[in-house]
């Protein structure tokens, strides 16, 4: 990356900048292209959601942002510096939770605080207090001493969410975090997520969120912008600004503007979605 590019990234004030990102898997002779030529600026404090039909490379994009996979082409920067690997400032919630089976609910949630840099400078009491608070927040009180295999899918998902929140990373990368929850819990946690992100606070104090979901209304409800990807290979199809007023609540979910935005996004992916389902 040249100096000119570096200044450029700073000037536009992108928190994360993807330029011409591509990712292929498999043999070089016959590569499978998962993501192609994706350029995107993620603004600081922005809640960005990504939707798209299956096979659009959503998870691959998230893994690259997390630093767990390296792009085949293009550059990725965070605050103007190239992303070269994982870092504690980018917290990830994995689609399959990735909970530590030998740790209890409490041990899993406190893992990053105890063993990673997230807990640096905190006393043991402060760590415990933070773990207790997120346990309460996601509704796991009473299950603190259970092991992951003793929990239902929905509860495991809450543990994964709580583990991410306990670490309080600057950037939250979330891969379908609420997918395994029932509809009511999901709505409650959407509201909770917006609160944690800081929708009541001035924009400068908010964390940056990149959020993958297959649910269009969830994407619209949460986001400042919705990124729509198309599949095979994953490409940027459309970016939709969501100018619904904040704080958002149940009134937002019932508004005409909300419904119109959902409808518009559905129109842009329905063809591909049908194709993916029917074939």
């Amino acid at each position: 990356m040249t100096d000119a590019e570096m200044t450029d990234a700073k000037m536009t004030d992108a928190k994360i900048r993807l330029s011409g990102i591509g990712k292929s898997f498999g043999a070089p002779a016959a590569p499978v292209v998962a993501v192609q030529d994706l350029s995107l600026d993620i603004r600081p404090g922005e809640f960005l959601t990504i939707v798209g039909p299956s096979g659009c490379g959503k998870t691959t994009v998230l893994n690259m942002l997390a630093g767990l996979e390296t792009p085949t082409t293009g550059t990725m920067t965070l605050d103007g510096r190239p992303i070269r690997g994982p870092g504690a400032e980018r917290g990830v919630m994995f689609q399959d939770y990735a909970l530590f089976p030998w740790k209890t609910v409490r041990g899993n949630i406190g893992f990053g605080l105890v063993h990673g840099p997230a807990g640096a400078g905190l006393s043991a009491a402060e760590r415990e207090e933070r773990v207790r608070r997120v346990i309460e927040l996601v509704g796991l009180t009473g299950s603190e001493e259970k092991y992951p295999h003793q929990l239902s899918g929905g509860m495991r998902q809450r543990v994964a969410l709580a583990r991410l929140m306990a670490n309080e990373p600057q950037i939250l990368l979330m891969d379908e975090p609420l997918a395994a929850l029932d509809a009511q819990t999901r709505i409650i946690l959407q509201d909770e997520l917006l609160r944690i992100w800081g929708q009541d606070k001035p924009a400068a104090e908010r964390r940056t969120v990149v959020y993958i979901t297959h649910s269009i209304d969830e994407a619209v409800f949460l986001a400042d912008r919705v990124v729509v990807l198309s599949s095979h290979p994953g490409r940027l199809k459309r970016i939709v600004e969501i100018d619904l007023p904040r704080p958002r609540d149940d009134a937002t979910r019932l508004s005409k503007a909300f419904a119109d935005l959902c409808q518009s996004i559905w129109q842009s992916i329905r063809e591909e979605a049908y194709r993916a389902t029917m074939t």
Binding site: G87, A88, F94, A98, F100, F111, H115, G116, A118
Partner: peptide, 22 residues
């Protein structure tokens, strides 16, 4: 499980800590 190691890496754990704790 590779995902467990990935999770620990995203929490900023060093290689040595991942070895001992994961």
């Amino acid at each position: 499980d590779r995902r467990l190691i990935a999770a620990a890496r995203t929490m900023g754990l060093s290689r040595g800590t991942i070895m001992r704790r994961v």
